[in-house]
Amino acid sequence: MIELDRAGRSFKVKRNVVHAVRDLSLTVTAGEFVGCLGPNGAGKSTTIKMLCGILTPTSGTVRVAGLDPSRRRTALARRLGVVFGQRTTLWWDLPLVDSFALIRHLYQVDRVTFRARLAELTETLDLGAFLRTPVRQLSLGQRMRGDLAAALLHAPDVLVLDEPTIGLDVVSKAGIRDFLRRVNAERGTTVLLTTHDLGDIERLCRRVVLIGHGRLAFDGSLEELMATAPGQSSIEEVVTRLYTAGTQ
């Protein structure tokens, strides 16, 4: 469903060439739930942007749902749901329902399907109380639930989430995680999320990918990740070791 083949992305910063991502190869098959870890500045966001077609890779190839994101951006958008934890994709001054109605038109979801999906998402994400509130007045937890609903209204094959639990309280986090697990299990939606919260990884991801310095530093199951550092008991310690090992 997601294929990166030796994908690279470099930027020119004042005559120097900075490689944000280099030679990244990764294949995610349909129905997988993959968590992407990496220290700040490791290239996670750049990778996400290449998957969405926002950035074109400078080398290698990227394919999502069988499409080249940079060439078929709008076609891909219909099959892809994207959530940025740091900023909303909703219309800031509009009530949530209006954002949803716009999304229905933009993604050309027919009315009957839309109603059914919205009803289902309203129930599972418990949106009922604030559907008519302008997005700017929502709490972060409410906004994130709204963003998730917006990303799923067109029933995408792939859901990409960039730090979806950032800044959320424990209860909201648990709610979001529970929901993501259900989306993956019940709809078979392929999910790729980046996070700094190792709780997300432990509770959700069967597969963990670690990016450091723009390269793939680890790719495997959670157990395999733990096995890289025998003797370490917590995932925090294992990841800290991997992060610091990368910088030396």
Binding site: C52, I54, T74, A75, A77, R78, F84, R87, T88
Partner: peptide, 22 residues
Amino acid sequence: AGTLDTFLIRPAGAWVQLTTDR
């Protein structure tokens, strides 16, 4: 503000979305 990305993840032209923004 980084909000241009949100226009680019939608299945519509950036020009149409930006001219109607707010």
